Simulated assay, not measured.
Amino acid sequence: MVAKLQTSKYDVQVDGQGCKACGYCLEVCPKNVFDQADYFNAKGYRPVRVKAAGDCIGCRRCFFACPDFAIDVNKKPAEEDCREKNI
Rank of each mutant, 00 (worst) to 15 (best):
V2G: 04
A3W: 05
A3R: 11
K4P: 00
K4W: 03
K4D: 04
L5N: 08
L5I: 12
Q6G: 09
T7M: 14
K9A: 02
Y10T: 00
Y10E: 01
V12G: 12
Q13S: 13
V14K: 09
V14E: 06
D15E: 13
Q17S: 08
Q17E: 15
Q17A: 05
Q17G: 14
G18I: 00
G18V: 00
G18D: 04
G18A: 10
C19M: 10
C19S: 09
C19E: 07
C19T: 04
C19F: 10
K20M: 08
K20N: 10
K20R: 13
K20A: 06
A21F: 06
C22Y: 02
C22F: 04
G23L: 06
G23Y: 07
G23F: 09
Y24C: 02
Y24V: 01
C25N: 11
C25S: 12
E27A: 03
E27G: 00
V28F: 04
V28T: 02
C29F: 01
K31H: 11
N32H: 15
N32T: 02
N32I: 00
V33L: 04
V33S: 04
F34C: 07
F34M: 07
D35Y: 03
Q36W: 09
Q36L: 08
A37Q: 10
A37W: 08
A37Y: 10
A37R: 13
D38V: 02
D38F: 01
D38L: 01
F40P: 01
N41Q: 09
N41C: 12
A42G: 00
G44V: 08
G44E: 07
G44S: 10
Y45L: 02
R46N: 12
R46M: 12
R46F: 03
P47N: 11
V48Y: 01
V48I: 13
R49G: 10
R49C: 08
V50M: 13
K51S: 12
A52Y: 14
A52P: 05
A53K: 14
I57E: 10
I57A: 07
G58P: 05
R60M: 09
R60L: 04
R60D: 08
R61G: 12
R61T: 05
R61Y: 14
C62N: 04
C62H: 02
F64G: 07
F64P: 04
F64W: 11
A65C: 09
A65T: 12
A65Q: 14
C66N: 11
C66Y: 11
P67E: 07
D72S: 14
V73G: 08
V73S: 09
N74W: 04
N74E: 15
K75N: 02
K76D: 06
K76I: 04
P77N: 05
P77T: 03
A78Q: 15
A78L: 12
E79S: 11
E80I: 13
D81S: 02
R83Y: 11
R83M: 05
E84L: 13
E84Q: 14
E84T: 14
E84Y: 15
K85D: 07
K85R: 06
N86K: 12
N86Q: 12
I87A: 11
